[in-house]
Design a protein around this nucleic acid. Structure first.
Lengths: 228, 228
DNA sequence: TGCATGGTTTGATGCTCATCGAAACATCGT
DNA sequence: ACGATGTTTCGATGAGCATCAAACCATGCA
């Protein structure tokens, strides 16, 4: 008999392949309809509907009705963090769904984690920002320095807007494939959006892959002082 | 159809209340026998045996036969990290097993996380170490500074031994109750052991609670420069 | 060589729940 | 108003599995 949070309830929600596929599909931060999720999960509409109801009831998903469509998204960014942690552990333990798929390398290079950049380039970006004194680790938190504020403003990020929301500006998120942190939080999300606006990178439809153009990749490396 | 690590397998293992109780009981880093775990989990010996077999098969637990006893422990420290993450999320979402139990405050103040100090005092200690320049955040990793090495040696920590193992010396572990990191890794484990050797604190049998004596608490605060 | 104790295996039972087809419901475009 | 599309509800089916009692195996002690 133990006290404390009920981890079994949450784990059981993620313990079904269908539901796991659903939340993984939502890990890119998008909001998908019930039908899309059913297809992604490889189940029929009724089963998906039942799963979605349970996930919503369990507090993992948020539902937004829009006309005849039902959009679902992760209820909280922290859920994405947990999923990355689960992936890391599953990988270490050797539980893999398939032999490394074809688009696996692209996924390891650059992917979306909820709504920010993850993968090799994601952690490299955070490293660069810290090395150049734009972000600072402080009491285990990430803080934007004055130099960092100037840098972001120059890069076209509207910090004022970002500080409006109650979501933290900077946050370290442990990367699944790199096993080191990358930048999350509203700033991380804004940066990824900016990359897309600048045409440096684009999201691959229906996957978490972020594809950089050769020119965009070069600009990216130059901006954050990456050698690789 | 998705690729990548199979999170459902791992989550399903943790999704049963019996198994969740088992791993939670092992979260204090101890190695317990099958019988003890059966009692902790509130199931009979046969069911526990089945659960333990599945957990071992799944790579979450390591078994060590000693005579007619079977000792189980978490297969890897990272599993403890994931469990704390799961607890944090479950708490946020509002899944609690019971109304806050009686020993809950003690647990939030100071407890064992796998083998190192967690809770209010755990994060305060890390804060103090960083503030005083003994640990430094670097590229998202924790590093022991020169001043820190001197401090640890003076405090009676044998760094040479710690560096032998392949386990990282310092590691940040996200605290379940405080939602901020505390110090893990072999150094974190060594510090907790030292506290016990000095008589500052002692483990409460059969729980994760770490109980500081009044004098020990004062020494602790003085050593790490805590005001609270 | 026995007896006690810890642990696992086996077998049987019952429950939860994932799944899908069919039908009902809701919304949109025409 | 009506057909088309997206979504949920209902009902039925089946599989997986958690559970325990009883039997079995192994180790330690006398």
């Amino acid at each position: 008999m133990q006290t404390g949070p009920d981890i079994a309830r949450v784990a059981a929600l993620l313990g079904d392949p269908g539901r796991a596929n659903i939340v993984t599909a939502l890990l890119d931060g998008s909001a998908l309809t019930a039908g899309e999720l059913a297809r992604q999960a490889g189940v029929t509409a009724p089963t998906a509907s039942a799963h979605l109801a349970r996930l919503e009831q369990g507090g993992l998903l948020a539902r937004q009705r829009q006309g005849r469509h039902n959009y679902f998204r992760l209820a909280h960014p922290e859920i994405g963090q947990l999923l990355e942690g689960l992936m890391g552990l599953a990988e270490r333990i050797g539980h893999r769904r398939t032999r490394t798929g074809p688009k696996e390398p692209a996924l390891r290079l650059a992917r979306v984690c909820y709504d920010h950049l993850a993968g090799e380039l994601g952690v490299a970006m955070l490293d660069g920002l810290v090395r150049d004194g734009r972000l600072a680790h402080e009491d285990g938190q990430l803080r934007l320095t004055e130099a960092g504020e100037a840098f972001m403003a120059d890069f076209g990020i509207g910090l004022v807007d970002l500080r409006q929301g109650r979501r933290p500006l900077c946050r370290a998120c442990l990367d699944w494939s790199e096993r080191r942190p990358h930048l999350a939080g509203s700033l991380g999300a804004a940066l990824l959006q900016r990359f897309q606006a600048l045409g440096w990178a684009s999201r691959e439809a229906g996957s978490r892959v972020v594809r950089f153009s050769p020119a965009g990749r070069a600009e990216f490396a130059a901006t954050f002082g990456l050698t690789g």
